[in-house]
Design a protein around this nucleic acid. Structure first.
Lengths: 167, 167
DNA sequence: CATTTAGTTCGGTATTTACAGAACTAAACG
DNA sequence: CGTTTAGTTCTGTAAATACCGAACTAAATG
């Protein structure tokens, strides 16, 4: 049914592309994805068209079904990937859900909260100690996080505003 | 020589404190420290006075010398911990270097760069593809990172300004 | 300069984690 | 309603990682 060029990605040799997937994959591996998750994600970033069915992913990466299944599951849980379906075709076509991915990133930015509360615990537990200098430094760093907690939503708002007025 | 109360931390039972170290430790474990690194870090955050010699750390955490040595090494490389020395005492007293730790955090905030360049690679590799919608989304998310790359230094400057005028 | 002290490094082990393969499931198709 | 399809789940294994213990090193001490 897909009558486009059936290449996985545009006009480059398949070997080249495998290399690119590895390369991009390594970057995302360092942002807390497992090697295979990172490769799946990189592949979907580069694929043309930008959605692939389960078997195509498995075949390209030469991995087992379970590994691909688990990688996709985690990528979907993290909001980086979703899938579309096509009428009269029961396959799922997996793709990077760029906009949800962006939302996840934005939310994670907002998560300074836990740092603040952990520091508060520490500061509270230290309240009877005889280390005023150190305790003051802890208050200082907590202050910084509180500052971020205020400012990050601000720049988020600024971004929203910029994008709103761009249409 | 240390004529303070020799308790590891202030006026709480040692069992309590072990529990606190675990608790605070678990939080830092989730921010890319190994369990033992996280415990060492948590211990130094709670210790009173806020510096401890090698053996005191080892004894408290009931771990091997090598494990403590490696944990301290990594914590020092990451800029979270340093040590002081005392005249006529060849031990090193390890402590959380709050201000360097803060600097590290601030630097890591500034590191949006790699995200942008990875996205640029992806966008470049996709330039001949037939997926305008997807490609536009990628440009959009890249735009967001570029925006952050501008704005984060700004809020950093704002913080510096606030702190400068606070003395 | 032999010994103690304060750690580091090296080699091995146990636990965890990533992945494979095969058995299973649920929906759709003939 | 048996079979194919599109995945998932379960069980085992290989590789990576965290940790231990013992051998080592470098500085200070007697």
């Amino acid at each position: 049914m897909n009558n486009q060029n059936p290449d996985t990605t545009a006009n480059n040799s398949i070997r080249d592309i495998k290399q690119r997937v590895e390369e991009i994959g390594i970057f995302y591996e360092q942002t807390t994805l497992t090697p295979m998750e990172a490769r799946v994600f990189a592949l979907l970033l580069l694929a043309d068209p930008p959605e692939m069915d389960f078997f195509a992913i498995q075949d390209f990466l030469q991995a087992s079904k379970s590994t691909i299944s688990n990688a996709l599951k985690r990528l979907m849980n993290e909001g980086r990937v979703d899938y579309i379906t096509k009428p009269g075709d029961r396959k799922r076509y997996f793709r990077v859900s760029v906009l949800r991915w962006l939302e996840q990133i934005q939310e994670s930015f907002a998560s300074v909260g836990p740092f603040v509360s952990t520091l508060n615990k520490v500061i509270d537990l230290r309240k009877d100690t005889n280390s005023p200098e150190f305790n003051r430094e802890l208050l200082y760093i907590k202050d910084y996080f509180l500052f971020l907690k205020e400012e990050l939503p601000r720049i988020q708002a600024k971004w929203n505003e910029r994008k709103r007025s761009a249409d």
